[in-house]
Write a protein that binds this DNA or RNA. Structure first.
Lengths: 352, 352
DNA sequence: AGCATAATTTGAATCGATCCAAGATTTGCG
DNA sequence: CGCAAATCTTGGATCGATTCAAATTATGCT
């Protein structure tokens, strides 16, 4: 009397037809004579059949019609992180348009992550590369499914990627500030490599393992040099993209005799933390010091003051990512999208 | 020379072992002699085998280790709607803790929705009931998997649900306002049934099809009556939970000779729209009129003024939903959680 | 009725793995 | 060296459906 789940075969027997017919009644009802179809449905009803099990179907069918979105962060990252949310929103819109579903796959635990990636039933992956991106990308590559990495921080042209023009973005940020008349800068960097170092030199910067970080630093340096500012005089502080390291960086920078009037922050998160730090210190932004972020997250709209930043085309990135998976043709696409300067309230000419 | 995908069987042949052994090499490596295991891996490598296909495994295994989250809205609802986001965040946290994955399943198109639900490879469903909840619940029920409906608006005890004590919440809102001294109220309701009617009577209200709406209305009525306010004198306006209908409702209410000093809004969304409408009209909140919302979405924290509201325990709802699915024991749970009054800046004593 | 044609139904093969009882090898030890 | 115990390997059964060529039944027409 064990309640073994009902299979299509059971229904077929009950209805007195072959499995082939029973299957057709469900998945191609039009080719089964009405009377028989009714009989099959009645049998299903009587037995409490839940309908064809997708697992069986999937095995036969090939296409899953779902795309996996992976990251090495906790799953809640997708709903808590502003950047992720905006990109996910556009990914889901693109999926809606084509009827594809979404599987969220992630885990902080390495082993669990590997397992989750290996067992995700999807047609392809979109990979959010935060930290540990390379490990995640390797895992995904193993599946030999179409996949695309978003903002992948390494030079690797064996995979599809969608990124932004970091050099150009950084130049825009610097140009905006030099245009306003600033001459004393400081850079709040993201990580150059796996370990965070605090205050660093431009020589190290140029050798950064993470390509995104390196390119942004290069952009800043180039543009500042073009404005006749000696790059080596510009203090550089590497943060962990969080509050403690940002605060530590600012302590360090503003302890110096001639503090900067302009901060180039390499992420909005760092920039927003900087705004908080300045407010706590009674330093007025943008009167005393200007801040430019990088990313363009929605939070920057409602901060006090609203954040001037370099906006990534997040919606476009999501859209293209879905296109890349759904329209995969066997070749790797490497797209570099343009960023734009968004001027809001955190920048102004330097104090006189 | 067609590039047929490599199967485990191919690898077994190449390595000169049985498929049983090849399978073990991957899924229970410890029981295979090292030398043989290496041979199998080498063969896999050589053939470009992507690892055991999860579809095959799934069919055999039973458990999927993923839970489906369904709604009849577009997929992007999960990332755009504040209520959904908070609940999803806690759902994902609970999933992370147990290593379960998440599949987002949805579609506005009815047919597509049905198909997506039928073919989702999951162990159970959490259903977000917005509108058309009953259709969605029926579809889900068909799968005969564990599932739980969030804020399901109907009386139906054949399924598991997680909801809040709407009557108590509404009473709290009303009590807060009567305690402040208000005597002239108006209610901005959500839908009573499938069609929206605009201004309605309390007699109709008591017969609302949507149980959530009905209970909140009852709560308001009870508490107001307890304060000696004649319920029938209180204007009631049914909105669509959007801007146009909210604005229309307020036009209507404030065109009356003796406009209310307190608005009971049945959702934060409506309440927030009301705040906008008052601002546009130059009516000061809370000086001229007080507003109490219902839901407790994060937006209410940053509105101007911050919204006084009845907070639903969104995180708790998410957590319990996951528990209900993962620990399903064959019985339906019907949980009603408590709500709490959150006093912020949109309420004050009435003008003298 | 007789026959060609169209509409249905059948049943075996297949999708890609895992599991397990039984058989084959190794190892340990007197 | 021989035998029991321990360790590996094997191959068939199974998970739950879909598919398709072949067989069967129905329909149309003279």
């Amino acid at each position: 009397m064990a309640k073994r789940p009902i299979r299509l075969a059971d229904v077929a027997v009950e209805a007195g037809v072959s499995h082939g017919t029973a299957s057709n009644a469900f998945s191609r009802p039009e080719i089964v004579r009405e009377e028989v179809r009714e009989r099959v449905f009645a049998a299903a009803q009587k037995l409490g059949y839940a309908g064809p099990d997708p697992r069986g179907r999937l095995l036969r069918a090939g296409k899953v019609n779902a795309i996996g979105v992976a990251t090495a962060e906790p799953l809640s990252y997708f709903f808590d992180d502003p950047f992720a949310r905006v990109v996910m929103s556009s990914i889901t819109q693109a999926c809606d348009a084509t009827g594809a579903g979404i599987s969220l796959v992630s885990a902080v635990n390495q082993e669990q992550l590997a397992w989750n990636i290996q067992s995700a039933v999807v047609d392809g992956f979109i990979v959010f590369c935060i930290e540990g991106g390379s490990r995640l990308v390797d895992l995904t590559r193993e599946r030999r499914l179409p996949f695309v990495a978003l903002d992948y921080g390494f030079d690797d042209d064996s995979i599809s990627t969608i990124g932004v023009d970091d050099v150009a973005g950084a130049r825009m940020a610097a140009l905006h500030l030099t245009g306003l008349g600033h001459r004393r800068f400081a850079v709040l960097s993201l990580q150059l490599a796996d370990v965070t170092a605090g205050a660093i030199s431009w020589v190290e910067a140029d050798k950064a393992v993470y390509a995104g970080t390196r390119d942004r630093l290069r952009g800043y340096a180039e543009e500042l040099a073009a404005a006749g500012i000696a790059t080596n005089d510009i203090p550089l502080y590497e943060t962990d993209n969080d509050w403690p390291s940002t605060a530590a960086g600012l302590e360090h920078l503003f302890a110096a005799p001639n503090p900067p009037t302009a901060i180039l922050a390499m992420s909005d998160k760092v920039a927003l933390h900087a705004l908080d730090w300045f407010k706590a210190r009674g330093i007025a932004v943008p009167r005393d010091v200007s801040v430019v972020g990088f990313d363009g997250v929605p939070e920057g709209l409602v901060s006090d003051p609203p954040l001037t930043t370099i906006s990534q085309p997040m919606a476009e990135m999501g859209r293209r990512a879905v296109q890349t998976i759904l329209g995969f043709d066997g070749t790797n696409r490497r797209e570099t999208l343009d960023v734009a300067l968004t001027v809001r309230g955190s920048t102004a000419p330097p104090p006189v």
